[in-house]
């Protein structure tokens, strides 16, 4: 269960990092292009730390358990050959249903407002989540949390400032920002769902009670929206599934692109 939990945190980081990296070279302002690439690099760095730890956890499993963890043919082949897996294997060779990232992070960039809204919802969650994860009884997760929190604090400042700037900017930017926060709202509920992995993590002291973060998250979002002159979205339907491997159409396209080299040229050093 700890393996699944670690992978999920890594998947969130990898997929949001992938989305943000799509902006590189196409940003509206050169300085912001640089800032967003920095953030993308932070997420990618966190993903790597978590994947490396996940690979260690996997490699330490009893041989009999390994074949049933991932259904990917490529990983099954490595397991059958008795090869230890690494960060790239878990990122590039797992199939979509074994990815457990939030639906929110796989949503497309669309425009600057959607990108900012997606980051803001996620950064706010991350801020409280990684603050709490520092107390994990797993020293590896606690250390990753402590390092990540410094970066995430900056991410949250960046995305909050942009929500405010666009919300309280021009009429057009206000409308676009309101539309973006409203459209993405339905993907925010999943962050606070306590699924089996979350329950196991809380029970054994290595993870975070996400249900308890909801009030903090809501208050923070509300405060920023107030300053941005944005209305809290009214929708009550919350779409979930990512944490259980049931994704939106987007993930398949992301993986097709991201995994293409490793899938096409298996077993090579790059």
């Amino acid at each position: 269960m700890k393996l699944a939990y670690t992978l999920r945190l890594a998947d969130d980081a990898l997929i949001i990092g992938h989305r943000l990296s799509e902006w590189c070279g196409h940003g509206p302002i050169l300085e912001q292009d640089i800032a967003l690439t920095n953030t993308s690099l932070d997420h990618l760095g966190r993903a790597r730390s978590l994947y490396q730890y996940a690979a260690d956890l996997f490699n330490a499993l009893p041989a009999a358990e390994k074949p049933s963890v991932f259904s990917s043919v490529a990983i099954q082949g490595l397991v059958a050959a008795g090869t230890a897996i690494d960060e790239d294997d878990v990122a590039y060779l797992r199939d979509g249903w074994d990815f457990r990232n939030l639906l929110l992070v796989e949503q497309p960039n669309n425009d600057w407002a959607y990108t900012v809204a997606r980051s803001f919802y996620f950064d706010t969650f991350n801020f409280y989540f990684f603050s709490a994860l520092q107390q994990s009884n797993d020293t590896a997760l606690a250390a990753i949390a402590a390092k990540s929190l410094k970066e995430i604090t900056y991410h949250l400042r960046w995305s909050s400032e942009w929500v405010i700037r666009l919300g309280d900017g021009t009429e057009e930017s206000h409308q676009r920002m309101q539309q973006a926060v409203s459209d993405l709202w339905m993907y925010t509920g999943e962050m606070f769902v306590m699924n089996a992995a979350d329950q196991d993590a809380v029970q054994h002291g290595y993870g975070v009670d996400v249900d308890a973060l909801k009030t903090l998250w809501m208050e923070r979002v509300k405060a920023v929206f107030d300053e941005a002159t944005l209305a809290m979205p009214a929708g009550t339907w919350m779409q979930s599934g990512g944490k259980d491997g049931k994704h939106t159409d987007n993930l398949g396209y992301i993986l097709a692109e991201m995994q293409f080299m490793q899938r096409t040229y298996p077993g090579m050093e790059w």
């Binding site: 590189c24 993308s40 990618l44 993903a47 790239d88 293409f260 490793q262 790059w270």
Partner: peptide, 14 residues
């Protein structure tokens, strides 16, 4: 960037 063949190469390219 989105197609780099390893996580290390992706980070370096980015």
């Amino acid at each position: 960037i989105t197609r780099a063949p390893s996580l290390r190469r992706k980070a370096v390219l980015l």
